[in-house]
Computed example of a mutant assay.
Amino acid sequence: MRNLTRTFAAVAALGLAAGAATYTPPAAAREVVVIRTAPPAPRFERVPPPRVGYTWAPGYWNWYGGRYVWVTGRWVGVRPGYVYRPPAWRPYRGGYHYEREVWVRDPHWHR
């Protein structure tokens, strides 16, 4: 029984060592795509009545196939302790770059 336990421990250790040796962390740098033309003005969307447990994510312009394409707003489930920040186009190096939607920590939230 002792030999079997030692064998399993040795195989597990080898597996962990092999996994650690082949692990590659994700790239820290991301490619920033700059679009030279400004996005069109946001479209008007009628915001539906509030829904418990959800927040409204407004529509936005996305860059797809070499042109701006409108993405309709939608409901997203809330995350306690976080605030939804919608996607946005920001001026960047003579053009515009797209910042994805994110959930950021709410500094005023306490359990």
Rank of each mutant, 00 (worst) to 15 (best):
T5A: 09
L14A: 13
W63Q: 03
G81E: 03
P86Y: 01
E101T: 15
F8A: 14
G81R: 01
W61D: 02
W63P: 02
V32C: 04
I35N: 00
T5W: 15
Y23V: 11
Y60D: 02
G15F: 07
V76F: 00
P26L: 08
V102R: 15
A41C: 07
T37V: 12
P80Q: 03
P49E: 08
E101Q: 12
Y84Q: 04
E31A: 12
R85Y: 02
P26E: 04
Y92P: 02
Y23W: 15
V11F: 13
M1K: 13
T24S: 12
Y82S: 06
Y98E: 15
V71T: 10
T24K: 10
W61P: 03
G59Q: 00
P48E: 06
R51N: 01
R6T: 11
G73N: 04
E101C: 10
R2I: 12
A13Y: 14
A12L: 10
L4I: 14
V11I: 11
E31P: 11
E31V: 11
Y60K: 02
D106I: 04
T72V: 08
G15A: 05
T7V: 15
W103Y: 15
A29H: 09
R43F: 06
G19Y: 11
G59C: 00
Y98F: 12
G15T: 10
A12I: 12
L16N: 11
E31W: 07
